[in-house]
Amino acid sequence: MKIKLNVNSEDYTGDVEPRLLLVDFLRDTLGLTGTHVGCETGSCGSCTVLLDGRPVKSCLMLAAQADGSRIITIEGISKGEGMNRVQKSISESKALQCGFCASGIVIAATWFLERNENPNESDVREALSGNICRCTGYQPIVDAVLNASKEVK
């Protein structure tokens, strides 16, 4: 079936199998491999992308369901400014180890900080509760997001 998507501000039209998952459309069809496939069951959040401005898990969605939507992946999250404040903060404090969960966490945290000016730690933990990190125990990530929130946009 034909679908039309806007991904990172570029339009894509494609003919997809109805069963194609959104995450695989992004990775295999478009080659945007920054979005990861982790648990495949909607638990880990590695596949998080922004769909019409809100973070969703792209492994639990058919590409067909996203037809006509605007999608932002990790490749497009910084709006051409190098790294955004969340990415910078995580990078500077070396808040991650293996980095597999990074793209999902950056997407979820960036969206959260755009809506919350002065979050506290529990707000950040709640915002990241859909993203699993198996390396860090979360504290360095939470600290990095809190630090990013203090930066002037």
């Binding site: 959040g45 998080t48 969703v56 898990k57 979820a108 959260f112 915002a127 509760s129 859909g130």
Partner: peptide, 9 residues
Amino acid sequence: VGDPLLRNM
């Protein structure tokens, strides 16, 4: 329900 991402879906 679930987590913030699932609540968006």
